[in-house]
Amino acid sequence: MGRKASLVLWAVADVIAGVVAVGLLINVTSGLLPEPLTEPQVAWPALLLVSAVVAALAVRRIRQSEPPQSPNEALEQQRRHDELTPQFDITYRRSGSSDVVTLCLAFVGPLGLDRLDSVEVAVRNDRPDRRPVTAGPPTAEDIASVIWSPYRLRPGVDRADRMGRCTPAVPLDRGEVLYRTLELSLTPHWVPSQDFWRQQYADQPVRLTLTCTRKDHSPWVLPMEITIPSPASNEAS
Rank of each mutant, 00 (worst) to 15 (best):
166 C>Q: 05
81 H>G: 07
84 L>P: 04
183 E>R: 01
80 R>N: 12
91 T>R: 15
186 L>H: 00
189 H>K: 11
194 Q>M: 09
169 A>N: 05
125 N>G: 03
132 P>Y: 02
199 Q>T: 09
83 E>G: 02
133 V>F: 12
184 L>S: 09
142 D>Y: 04
169 A>Q: 07
79 R>L: 15
206 V>L: 12
207 R>Q: 08
89 D>T: 15
83 E>I: 06
111 L>I: 13
161 D>Y: 01
151 Y>W: 05
112 G>M: 12
87 Q>L: 15
135 A>L: 14
210 L>W: 00
155 P>S: 02
171 P>D: 01
116 L>K: 02
192 P>G: 09
222 L>T: 12
100 V>I: 15
94 R>A: 09
207 R>Y: 09
87 Q>N: 13
196 F>P: 03
95 S>W: 10
84 L>K: 03
177 V>S: 09
197 W>R: 05
214 R>G: 09
148 W>G: 00
88 F>N: 04
191 V>K: 06
130 R>T: 00
159 R>Q: 14
145 S>G: 11
190 W>F: 02
181 T>I: 07
149 S>F: 01
202 A>E: 15
80 R>M: 09
102 T>A: 08
187 T>F: 00
206 V>M: 05
94 R>G: 15
187 T>M: 01
85 T>V: 13
219 P>H: 04
98 S>K: 11
126 D>C: 15
178 L>P: 07
209 T>E: 13
120 E>W: 10
78 Q>G: 08
82 D>S: 11
212 C>D: 07
85 T>R: 03
114 D>E: 14
79 R>H: 10
207 R>I: 05
152 R>V: 06
102 T>C: 10
222 L>Q: 09
221 V>L: 12
185 S>P: 07
122 A>I: 06
135 A>H: 13
202 A>I: 08
126 D>R: 15
133 V>E: 14
144 A>P: 04
114 D>H: 11
220 W>Q: 13
137 P>W: 14
124 R>K: 14
88 F>R: 06
212 C>I: 07
186 L>K: 07
216 D>W: 09
201 Y>Q: 05
170 V>L: 06
199 Q>F: 14
157 V>T: 02
178 L>N: 00
96 G>I: 03
79 R>Q: 10
119 V>H: 02
108 V>T: 12
174 R>W: 02
89 D>H: 14
184 L>E: 13
172 L>S: 00
172 L>P: 01
151 Y>C: 03
104 C>G: 14
185 S>N: 03
158 D>C: 04
166 C>T: 02
177 V>T: 15
103 L>C: 08
191 V>D: 01
90 I>N: 04
98 S>N: 07
131 R>T: 06
86 P>F: 01
145 S>R: 01
158 D>P: 02
197 W>Q: 08
215 K>M: 14
84 L>I: 10
175 G>I: 11
142 D>W: 05
214 R>T: 08
196 F>C: 09
117 D>N: 15
222 L>P: 00
121 V>K: 04
127 R>F: 14
95 S>C: 10
87 Q>K: 05
94 R>E: 11
207 R>S: 05
206 V>P: 00
141 E>A: 07
219 P>D: 02
110 P>G: 07
138 P>H: 12
126 D>W: 06
99 D>Y: 06
158 D>V: 01
